[in-house]
Design a protein around this nucleic acid. Structure first.
Lengths: 147, 147
DNA sequence: AAAGGTAGTCAAGCTGCTTGACGAAATAGT
DNA sequence: ACTATTTCGTCAAGCAGCTTGACTACCTTT
């Protein structure tokens, strides 16, 4: 059991990759073919009540400039809008447009479609155990690119 | 159970990220501080009997030029060597140097150190179940960056 | 009112990847 | 055996996504 621990990284990373690739493919298949997986991580943060550039930068673990640049791209493509921040005239609140929300729903559908058969094969108990075990290893919340 | 499927990507990616970051930190702590996680994925392929540039490129899902470039960097830093290929005078077999093997062992140690308490907390049965469940989702073998 | 800190953008540069083109060697066709 | 085609690896140039540095506008503290 000690030596075999080394196959776990491979299994985990393969599973993560399958997920990212599958969701990306599903999103593209639904017509949103001008986005990359990295954009999905931004959407996760924006999908609540929106976020400022700085908040998004922290979430993605990049500089404000990089985040600002990605937002500019998403604005151009029609997925998000910059609105004045209610409490701070310096800041700008970045929120999803209807198109942005549609894309988010598409990603959710793709993910569900991908995971449903898998979850069904596992069954509720193992699924619950898996959730607990994974949560013990990572620290959910900040979902962003790995390297 | 249907709606909750959407937290699984977050859990999986968080766990994967924790692993990659942890191993990277462990490798650096052991003195190999001039490598990035991406290099680790190359090492995985080279650690067998070595590989050609083309094989590594396919493993990493990049062009031959990009793989060749990374190899050049690893050669300069002393982790790998280019040897003539036994069966094909065009090809060159890239293999790990003693330093490369030492780094590989360091990565294994870091991974084991990271996973041991986690595995102990889970216990053998849940660990086995986790392995099986993860293997069902991804397709192990080609471990490479996700996006 | 003045001083310092913070939000966001503009500009320039770097790194890791890409596409394109090439010589050397293996393989296939005749 | 000889030519034609494919494959291995590299050189060269270009591009995309990030970085650091500098700056303005605005908030906060005293």
């Amino acid at each position: 059991m000690e030596r075999d621990l080394l196959d776990l990284p491979v299994l985990l990373l393969s599973a993560a990759r399958a997920l990212v690739d599958g969701i990306d493919a599903g999103v593209r298949a639904r017509g949103f073919d001008d986005l990359r997986p990295a954009h999905g991580f931004a959407f996760v943060r924006l999908a609540g009540d929106g976020a400022t550039v700085g908040q998004l930068a922290e979430h993605l673990n990049v500089t404000k400039q990089a985040a600002s640049q990605m937002i500019e791209e998403l604005v151009t493509k029609g997925y998000v809008t910059r609105r004045p921040h209610p409490d701070d005239a310096r800041a700008r609140l970045v929120v999803l447009t209807p198109k942005g929300w549609a894309c988010t729903r598409a990603a959710d559908e793709a993910a569900t479609e991908l995971l449903r058969p898998w979850a069904a094969a596992l069954g509720p108990e193992r699924l619950a155990a898996l959730r607990a075990d994974l949560a013990r290893l990572g620290t959910p919340g900040r979902v962003r690119p790995i390297w």
